[in-house]
């Protein structure tokens, strides 16, 4: 690992038009729903950075913003020293050339009317100078690497299994040399044994291509197995960023620790007795205020990020910077 920063995200804010409120468009308030609320993090070259969060936390929005599908309202994204201006075509091309993405739904992300070979070729559209022969060479190389049989290259997506579809998505994302690959729940629609195959493959690809992963999932067993560092996302805010060992053995933020407690593994037994109260995200003060067991007066003000031994925690409990 080179310990060099490859991607930096600063105060990224993404908002969507609130469709329910749109009917009353005369009233300006409440028209926008803030999906990502000024989040910041940076990613080191060669690591696997995990993002965990529950439904509606903004995980997928973050993934899509990082490849330029959604445009941020404000904030900065710096990729290998170059700041991305989302209004400039060159910058977007630069972003897409270096950052690949694999989506959760392997069915929806493959064009049903193209053969597998052509689907993978789409990933090369950005490399304009490549001749068709060179393209074919690259396609064959990458399909070998992701374990896709040659015979499948001439099939259509409906003729192959879910695991193979996800391999095609990987091949398409990696067919030109990407530096970062975003994996948005890449295994959650797969069977357990197929999931294990894909996880093994992802680890092998990372070793061979020396690529950086951003791994988004809600599965705590998968994220522990895959990642070096983890960011915990809750309704558009990152509440904690820690190394994977730290967060599993000693979660700092009350939300992280609630999540870790709720996680079940093969070793746990009958963890269904304890009580949980989960309220709605708070509109003022700390976002986790309504559900937090450890809240005190200060929590009515939104906490900044505190640095505790290199871990970032958004909670007043760690104001002193000590554990």
């Amino acid at each position: 690992m080179k310990n060099e920063e490859i991607l930096r995200v600063e105060k990224l804010k993404v908002q969507f038009l609130n469709r329910e409120k749109l009917k009353f468009s005369a009233r300006k308030t409440g028209r926008w729903k803030i999906v990502l609320d000024e989040i910041s993090f940076s990613i080191i070259e060669g690591e696997t950075f995990g993002i965990v969060g529950e439904t509606g936390s903004g995980k997928s929005t973050l993934a899509r913003t990082l490849v330029g599908i959604y445009k941020p309202k404000s904030g900065r994204i710096t990729l290998m020293g170059r700041e991305i201006n989302f209004k400039k075509r060159e910058d977007l091309l630069y972003l897409r050339k270096n950052v690949g993405i694999v989506f959760q739904d392997p069915v929806g992300s493959l064009n049903p009317r193209l053969k597998i070979r052509e689907i993978i070729r789409e990933g090369l559209a950005i490399e304009e100078k490549l001749s068709r022969i060179d393209q074919d060479k690259k396609i064959d190389e990458i399909s070998d690497l992701v374990g896709l049989a040659d015979s499948k290259l001439d099939s259509y997506p409906n003729e192959i299994s879910g695991g193979e579809k996800q391999r095609v998505s990987l091949a398409r994302a990696l067919v030109n040399n990407k530096r970062i690959l975003i994996l948005d729940e890449p295994t959650s629609s797969l069977d357990v044994s197929i999931q294990a195959q894909i996880l093994n493959l992802l680890r092998k690809l990372k070793d061979e291509l020396s690529i950086t992963y951003i791994f988004i999932t809600h599965d705590f067993n998968v994220i522990r197995y895959m990642c070096d560092r983890i960011g915990v996302l809750y309704y558009g805010q990152i509440l904690e960023i820690s190394s994977v060992h730290d967060i599993y053995e000693n979660p700092l933020h009350p939300y992280s620790s609630d999540l870790m407690n709720a996680n079940i593994t093969l070793e746990t037994e009958n963890k269904f007795d304890s009580q949980y109260e989960i309220g709605e995200p708070s509109r003022s003060g700390c976002i986790y205020l309504n559900s937090c067991m450890k809240k005190f007066e200060k929590c009515n003000i939104s906490p900044p990020e505190f640095n505790v031994n290199g871990r970032l925690v958004k909670c007043w409990l760690y104001e002193s910077g000590k554990l």
Binding site: S161, S193, A196, Q197, K204, N221, Y225
Partner: peptide, 18 residues
């Protein structure tokens, strides 16, 4: 197939095929 450890625990023991 169910991952139980950290990254250091090595590849998951699963055979190819579906």
């Amino acid at each position: 197939s169910v991952p139980t450890g950290y990254k250091e625990s090595g590849p998951l023991k699963v055979t190819e095929g579906a």
